[in-house]
């Protein structure tokens, strides 16, 4: 393992599908960690946006999921893995405005079809992998050695 890949910090969060009561908790904790260890504030803001959207996707659509925060000297990596319905058409899901949210979720102000595009917009690197009927995984990466967005 080279030095730049060395993990400085790793944290794991469990997310329960349908649990609107605790929705946002993992993201709030992540933000607090980033502030505590002195990550640049613009990166913290972008990470908060991405982690909140990713967390809410699990709450809204999946049975359960896990979010892992990994920090190396060069990168901040959010890895999300869920057990849920998966995404049938990823190109469509990435389109702004496309959503499969229920009326109830929309009334709450979710399901505007902004989630995944927002994650991609804020990340330096974004990868989505999904098996319909099984689940979805997301890799969201932020470069720590530059404060400007890509």
């Amino acid at each position: 393992m080279t030095k730049s890949d060395e993990t400085l910090l790793s944290q794991h969060f469990e997310i329960t599908g349908g649990d609107f009561n605790n929705a946002g908790k993992a993201s709030t904790s992540i933000k607090e960690i980033l502030q505590e260890i002195g990550i640049d504030s613009s990166i913290t803001v972008r990470t908060s946006i991405a982690s909140y959207e990713a967390e809410m996707n699990v709450v809204m659509y999946a049975r359960r999921g896990e979010l892992t925060l990994n920090i190396t000297p060069e990168k901040l990596h959010l890895k999300l893995k869920d057990e849920g319905p998966g995404i049938k058409n990823i190109d469509m899901a990435m389109q702004e405005g496309f959503s499969t949210a229920t009326d109830e979720m929309r009334e709450m102000g979710f399901g505007a079809g902004m989630g995944l595009p927002n994650i991609k917009k804020n990340a330096d690197k974004f990868e989505l992998f999904s098996i319909p009927g099984k689940g979805t995984s997301l890799d969201i990466i932020f470069c720590l050695n530059k404060t400007e967005k890509k």
Binding site: F20, N21, A23, G24, S27
Partner: peptide, 15 residues
Amino acid sequence: TLQIHQNIIAVAKLK
């Protein structure tokens, strides 16, 4: 906003 459900708090906190 006119939203009154609990999820607005996490949004305000995060931002």
